[in-house]
């Protein structure tokens, strides 16, 4: 089966500083993929680059195929038809991601006009139906509301309605809940999951929070400093991370079951693209680093069924949660 999206060797640099170093990632139709990593690891840039949404000073190379057809560097008219059509994207801060001087109805209607050719009353009726679909209360009245008149959660629902307007095969949700309250976060994640079930679209859920991704996604890719460092089915990753960075991210999660414990955040920060260390970018922060790690960049290789990791010394042991609690 051809993948829905196949990204290979995707590299991006901003004014000479490399932000992505050859990312390979693919996605089956209808699949839910989580993309996690600390802030600055290149998650947003990956998908902005794939859709041609980066500013002109970004140098992009590699390949992005949508059902086999190359879209990287495709003409503007092709990209315009595809964006908001087959591939939709929503962003972190719903309040500033919506145009403050246009009504919600107008902004959803614009997507309906572009991708479905709807106009007049049919357009507004469909916009209202989409607002109902995303659980917007009092949808008829919300059509004529402006973003500043809605709450953060309502704005994100409006963004999602707008993204659904073109009946996408793939929805990329870039930190859709980061700017929202915890209770609203859960509602939005639930909404995304149920919409995926109803429509059969694929979902890429970008988050710096593994917990957010784990509940919603089948498969998770972990990114660090512009590279994918581990890729695995969501459950398997949680049970037994192979890359020390992934283990670090899991260690930083609060456990829902079991006694409260100190969170073990990974010491240090993501290196700036301009001063990336030679060899494995995680080595300076890695508890298991050896001299080989500074010498070369480990390639992303098969480490098990449907699992890949980019580490010279992938973790083998499969510590249970109980064990980790004791060592923490």
């Amino acid at each position: 089966m051809t993948p829905l999206v196949a990204i290979s060797g995707l590299s991006v640099s901003f004014d000479g500083a490399a932000a992505l170093h050859g990312v390979d990632l693919s996605l089956a139709p209808g699949e839910a993929l989580g993309l996690v990593g600390e802030s600055g690891s290149g998650k947003s840039v990956t998908w902005l680059a794939a859709l041609g949404l980066l500013p002109p000073h970004a140098a992009v190379s590699g390949s992005v195929r949508l059902e086999g057809a190359e879209i990287l560097g495709a003409p503007a008219s092709t990209l315009d038809r595809l964006r908001g059509g087959r591939v939709a994207m929503i962003f972190q801060d719903p309040a500033s991601s919506l145009n403050p001087v246009l009504t919600i109805g107008k902004q959803i209607g614009e997507a309906l006009a572009l991708h479905r050719g709807l106009d007049g009353r049919a357009r507004m009726a469909e916009a209202k139906r989409l607002l109902d679909l995303v659980g917007m209360p009092d949808s008829a009245r919300r059509l004529s509301a402006y973003p500043h008149e809605l709450s953060g959660g309502q704005n994100q629902r409006a963004m999602i309605a707008m993204a659904l307007a073109g009946r996408p095969d793939l929805l990329i949700a870039d930190e859709p809940t980061t700017a929202l309250d915890v209770t609203i976060q859960a509602q939005i994640l639930e909404l995304l999951a149920s919409l995926r079930k109803e429509t059969g679209m694929a979902l890429v859920l970008i988050s710096h929070d593994l917990g957010v991704v784990a509940e919603t996604c089948d498969r998770v890719a972990v990114m660090y400093a512009g590279r994918i460092v581990e890729e695995a089915p969501a459950l398997a990753l949680f049970e037994a991370p192979r890359h020390p960075y992934a283990e670090g991210l899991i260690g930083a999660l609060p456990l829902l079951d079991g006694p409260r414990r100190r969170l073990t955040a990974i010491p240090g920060t993501v290196p700036d693209p301009r001063e990336a260390p030679p060899g494995c970018a995680f080595a300076p922060r890695c508890p298991k680093a050896a001299s080989a790690c500074a010498g070369a960049v480990p390639a992303l290789t098969e480490v098990g069924p449907a699992r890949r990791a980019a580490c010279f010394f992938p973790l083998r042991s499969t510590p249970s949660r109980a064990e980790r609690k004791v060592t923490a």
């Binding site: 949404l53 315009d80 908001g84 962003f91 500033s96 991601s97 919506l98 614009e110 997507a111 073109g166």
Partner: peptide, 11 residues
């Protein structure tokens, strides 16, 4: 950000 949103929806 809303300019990027507009581009992302195919305007």
């Amino acid at each position: 950000p809303y300019i990027r949103t507009a581009s992302a929806k195919g305007v």
